[in-house]
């Protein structure tokens, strides 16, 4: 950019597919995302909106992939599943790109989607567990104590003794540091429920850890 050149060009950004291709290329995101994109055909405005939404989604992925994968790790316990959950959530968001017109709602939507996918994984895992009883996720497995330390492993083992909802509330509050309203949004429950659930989760965790809440 030349000196004195305004940061925002007066020329409007390229619409539709071309715009997405540009963003994807700049972002280093695999070109499959471009191939999957089908801008709405209703109007020129629709093309521009879809392009902007896709660009926002790509940007969101770059900015939040790591944090979201780590969040999923806290819930499901292993990295591979956590990565899949985040990938799937973004892929699903991409499929529904026409509906994601409000950039401010994208992150809450993705977060909720990741948490929902983690729930699905755990549900499927329970079925497998019932049949085989062999599953031992790495984060709270004996092997992980070498990496995490016994003290942290003890916390994760205590977390696993909590009901799903309480565990999710603690992850969202104490790892993602979300506020009540945001947690309520992700979990699909009321703010009062978030507060009570978190308080109860802490009390139960303290009991399992043998300390004060």
């Amino acid at each position: 950019m030349k000196m004195g050149e305004p940061k925002h060009r007066s020329k409007p950004p390229p619409a539709g597919k071309q715009r997405i291709r540009e963003v994807a290329r700049v972002s280093g995101v695999e070109s499959d995302i471009v191939g999957a994109m089908r801008p709405p055909r209703t109007s020129v405005q629709g093309h521009e909106q879809a392009g902007d939404a896709s660009a926002a989604l790509v940007s969101l992925f770059r900015e939040h992939q790591l944090g979201l994968t780590r969040t999923a790790l806290m819930i499901v316990g292993d990295r591979a599943t956590a990565e899949d959950a985040v990938q799937d959530a973004f892929a699903e968001a991409h499929r529904r790109i026409d509906r994601l017109t409000d950039p401010d709602r994208m992150l809450p939507y993705i977060r909720a989607s990741v948490v929902n996918r983690c729930r699905s994984v755990l549900r499927r895992r329970r079925i497998a567990f019932s049949a085989a009883r062999v599953h031992e996720p790495p984060v709270w497995s004996a092997e992980s104590s070498v990496i995490l330390g016994e003290d942290r492993r003890e916390v994760f083992l205590a977390l696993q003794r909590l009901p799903r909802r309480q565990r999710e509330a603690l992850v969202l509050r104490y790892y993602l540091d979300l506020g009540e309203a945001e947690i309520a949004d992700v979990m699909g429950i009321g703010r009062g429920t978030v507060r009570s659930t978190t308080a109860r989760a802490l009390a139960a965790l303290a009991k399992h850890l043998g300390e004060q809440a």
Binding site: V29, D32, I33, G35, A36, M37, V58, E83, A91
Partner: peptide
């Protein structure tokens, strides 16, 4: 982490 790989339409 792996880059985003969205499925085709």
């Amino acid at each position: 982490l792996a880059p985003l790989t969205a499925p085709r339409a």
